[in-house]
Simulated assay, not measured.
Amino acid sequence: MTEASSKHGRLIVLSGPTAVGKGTVEAALRRRHPEVWVSVSATTRAPRPGEENGVNYWFMDDDEFERDEDEGKFLETAVVHGMAHYGTPLGPVLEHLATNTPTILEIDLQGARRVRERAAELGLDVEYVFIAPPSFDELVRRLVGRGTETAEQREKRLETARVELAAESEFDVTLVNDEVDATAEALWGVIAEEYGL
């Protein structure tokens, strides 16, 4: 256990394949447990309908993102689906952990791996939680039902999802997202244990 982890709860990294429902589970968790803070990622992708800057993501152009990356302002960055840059702003994460606020990063597999690489360097203790679909067929159904991607984008996401599913063993805990509220409560159980709540 690191010196930082003896004083504060662990950073919770929530990951899993595309369209598994990470965001839906996280939203259900926050409705029941508003004391949980979820990091807002930065991205260079365009906003989807209804998304707000600073709420869903910090939307940035490529130059702004690259400048912040060069200045070390991200905990991790990744190019997702070969299309857009994503990153976790480091400052707010450290601020919330310092006040022992239950802190979650909802990120893709690349991001989770980069956090693992930097955690020791930053003195962070991390619990890695994998959200899995009940089956691959259900994952396909959810992705198609979302209706936010073109056929080509969906195929690229499904290729990525196959790789992401194979990485489940890299995580400390797996939660199968069969039913959103039950999965959110299971996630709260992990957080409560880590933070002594």
Score class of each variant (00 low, 15 high):
2 T>H: 15
8 H>F: 12
12 I>L: 11
16 G>I: 10
19 A>D: 08
21 G>R: 02
25 V>I: 04
28 A>L: 03
34 P>A: 05
37 W>V: 03
41 S>W: 12
42 A>Q: 05
44 T>A: 04
44 T>S: 00
45 R>S: 01
46 A>S: 14
46 A>Q: 15
47 P>H: 09
47 P>E: 06
48 R>M: 15
50 G>S: 07
50 G>E: 10
51 E>S: 03
52 E>L: 15
54 G>F: 10
58 W>E: 15
59 F>R: 05
61 D>V: 02
62 D>R: 12
64 E>I: 12
65 F>D: 00
66 E>L: 15
70 D>K: 13
70 D>G: 14
70 D>V: 15
71 E>H: 13
73 K>C: 10
73 K>R: 14
74 F>N: 05
74 F>M: 05
75 L>C: 04
77 T>M: 02
78 A>K: 11
81 H>K: 07
83 M>L: 15
84 A>T: 11
85 H>R: 13
86 Y>N: 03
89 P>D: 01
89 P>A: 04
90 L>G: 01
94 L>W: 07
101 T>W: 08
102 P>V: 02
106 E>M: 14
108 D>K: 14
110 Q>H: 12
110 Q>A: 15
110 Q>L: 14
114 R>L: 09
114 R>T: 07
115 V>L: 01
119 A>F: 00
120 A>I: 07
120 A>R: 06
124 L>E: 00
127 E>A: 14
128 Y>M: 02
129 V>W: 00
133 P>A: 04
134 P>S: 02
135 S>T: 01
136 F>I: 01
144 V>Q: 11
147 G>N: 03
148 T>P: 10
152 E>C: 08
153 Q>N: 08
153 Q>H: 11
154 R>T: 09
159 E>R: 13
162 R>G: 07
162 R>A: 09
166 A>D: 13
168 E>V: 07
169 S>Y: 14
170 E>Y: 15
176 V>K: 04
179 E>Q: 13
179 E>C: 04
180 V>R: 02
181 D>P: 02
181 D>F: 06
182 A>G: 10
183 T>P: 06
185 E>L: 06
186 A>S: 09
186 A>W: 07
187 L>D: 01
189 G>P: 04
194 E>T: 10
196 G>L: 06
197 L>T: 13
